[in-house]
Nucleic acid binder design. Sequence first.
DNA 1: GCAAATTAATGATTTATTCAAG
DNA 2: CTTGAATAAATCATTAATTTGC
Lengths: 191, 191
Amino acid sequence: MPQTPSTRWCPTPEQLMILEEMYRSGVRTPNAAQIQQITAHLSYYGKIEGKNVFYWFQNHKARDRQKLRRRLSRHQQLHLQLHQSEDAPPPSPTLQHHMPLQFLHQGCFQEATTQGMDLVGKLETVGTEEEEPMTSAMGFEHEWMATKSIGSPVPPCCRPLKTLDLFPVKSTSLKDECSSSKSSSCSTSTN
Amino acid sequence: MPQTPSTRWCPTPEQLMILEEMYRSGVRTPNAAQIQQITAHLSYYGKIEGKNVFYWFQNHKARDRQKLRRRLSRHQQLHLQLHQSEDAPPPSPTLQHHMPLQFLHQGCFQEATTQGMDLVGKLETVGTEEEEPMTSAMGFEHEWMATKSIGSPVPPCCRPLKTLDLFPVKSTSLKDECSSSKSSSCSTSTN
DNA sequence: GCAAATTAATGATTTATTCAAG
DNA sequence: CTTGAATAAATCATTAATTTGC
């Protein structure tokens, strides 16, 4: 028999989807009770333990942070050799949506109104994997290469769709990488 | 000297965030007009051309699809060596959110600054395969490791598994739980 | 086409840091 | 100042994916 009785946890796609959904929803360091709940529910989709959930959130958070840091440093070390000839170089990585994202909607356009449909739905260009169809792309590439400087106004066909900025979830760790201020003072305490 | 005047496009963190936001919102293959608009807006945050936007979406879509396929295949090969000892083996990767997620709120856990380690003492129902050599670091995690088989060690203080069967939370913002105060129970700030 | 070697991804451990309490 | 708890960073280890030689 294959003597792999207890290898490491291999998450099922459902489990991964749920975990990622939770992470996107703001869950980062669930406490023991939450871990128990998550584990209980995820166990419906396959074998899982609490430590797996714990480790998953730890790793995911760490690697997300790592990714952010990496792209920051990479951008740092790049901008010193070439200069952004823009008029307003934003120094802070906090984007405050100077771009209204209306054209995200493209519901007035052809497809992909909802993001849920592109999961495994049609995938018309499968088989090409990650090699980009250069030849077909270059056929019209000069179009937007030529028109990249116009800056036409955003079509006001739709209003921004994604503005759910708050959610009731609350993790246990309040000191995260997004807060540089190590304010140990309980500002909400009795004063 | 590192005078690479025409390196490839290095996206700024803001640009990446916006692009990912757009991708999550459903944009997969923007047409030339959309690409031009995206480029115009993203050029505020740094040097960018239309082809960069085009290639980014191409690559991101391909990578996403690759990731999905890998998950599926990995799960395929997994279920043959270990059996889900659950009562309901899910055959389809379509998850219908049978997990309610209310426990994310944990609003009843004021004292949950520390991870809820008062879960359950020690349920010695384990001893299945191997003793976990968790000797250091997380002194609390053996608790939910021990309770992995019982299924209901949740403290009765907060068990909000009521009825909501879908994810009410949906957000794409990366700034989330850093907003709350550190410890809401620190009524006495010792100075 | 298949199998060994290589590489990338990621689950699991360990170590260091931080903050609070005494 | 010391200690203890919690977590983030770093690292290790294993699995899956890709590459390569036959």
